[in-house]
Design a protein around this nucleic acid. Structure first.
Lengths: 208, 208
DNA sequence: GAAAAAGATTGAACGAGTTCATTTTTTAAG
DNA sequence: CTTAAAAAATGAACTCGTTCAATCTTTTTC
């Protein structure tokens, strides 16, 4: 048997992640005790720490999976976007926002974002930051694509524009997660209100 | 004697805040133990918790004072800004960024931002969020002022534009705090590179 | 297939933030 | 001035994340 050890290792890692995700979603991050997660995953507390550096890492790992999925969906939109700046942005951003609460609660997002800010040198925080960078690049690519198709004025700095759009939608998402009562639609409406006038400025097509 | 109690109370609150700020700056947030802060402030651990809900609150209180100062400096710039969009933005943002590291370390900022995201319902986190809102409004007011003086095209949505500029500079500041090696000048250069092309779009004055 | 080496697991012990029943101090009332 | 009531201070005890020396399991060696 070539990989009994490797097999057990993969199995345990997955069990821990599943147990943690379940408990985080059920009662929130703080209420899920390491001991509980270990028990549900059928490993000891010490073993859990062989797989993840600390409690936060487990959460960030969960969030990283979610972001990876969103990136894939976003790539499809960027490959063939609506040929209208405001609408293209709305479509891509809706893809991001709509997926965000499928597997994760606002509280989980808040905790994950807080961790990635507070301990940026952790391997999984680095990964989270890197995924953020990819999302940012994706928005920039959208603007570049629109520019290549003549929908955005040639003189516009697509890269800078994309970064600013991304930082805005990201910051607005943080604010959204801070207010439990705020619905997704309100977030989308507010971001659209910010982006639409700017989209009009860089657009070659005038909307009536 | 009307206010012995009130006087002692104010005195203790200040002593705790001073002690905490000193220890946070010296060795970082995590290394400063509650017991150490209490000892330096000459109160017991329990008393400290009568004045602040938790360790994070003490830090957020410190940061809130810093932001308040920055807001005052910003108001002077907005009242009489350079009559050039890119330059006006640069000036206001330099005021924000340059003050940011005078009293606080990047690590303190990271921790404070993380706390205000993670526990947004805490009184002092609310205060921090409110101050953020005031900074945002200040940037919007800058654009409005420039528009009123004819430097920004009349058709531009100054409010939306200001919010987007602010969210961008705020997000970039978070990234800046995540990388210990990054100097202030690099941050300002990157943000300027993002804002300058947009400033050109909304500006009535063309730069050669 | 037995023994040694390497790799993982374990849970008791530790550290630091937080709580709360008790004690002390201040104010108000008689 | 004495005493009762209110407010605040105190620190030992508690919780929970984290560590690490001892133990067990898997792999490699001969």
């Amino acid at each position: 048997m070539a990989g009994l050890r490797a097999k057990q290792k993969a199995d345990r890692a997955r069990r821990i992640l599943d147990a943690a995700a379940t408990l985080f979603r059920e009662g929130g991050y703080d209420s899920a005790r390491i001991e509980d997660i270990a028990e549900m995953a059928e490993v000891s507390v010490g073993t859990l720490y062989n797989y993840y550096q600390n409690k936060g890492d487990i959460l960030v790992a969960t969030v990283a999976m979610e972001v990876t999925e969103v990136l894939e969906g976003g790539a499809r939109i960027v490959a063939n976007p609506p040929l209208n700046v405001a609408e293209a942005l709305r479509t891509l951003i809706a893809q991001y926002y709509d997926h965000s609460l499928v597997y994760l609660s606002k509280e989980m997002w808040r905790t994950a974002m807080a961790i990635s800010i507070q301990q940026p040198e952790t391997p999984l925080s680095r990964r989270y930051t890197e995924l953020d960078g990819q999302l940012c690049a994706q928005v920039a690519r959208l603007i570049e694509t629109l520019q290549a198709r003549g929908v955005v004025h040639a003189g516009v700095d697509a890269r800078a524009m994309g970064e600013v759009f991304f930082n805005n939608l990201n910051m607005m998402f943080i604010e959204f997660c801070k207010v439990d009562a705020m619905p997704l639609e309100a977030l989308k409406a507010r971001v659209n209100a910010q982006h639409e006038p700017i989209a009009a400025l860089i657009s070659t097509v005038k909307i009536v």
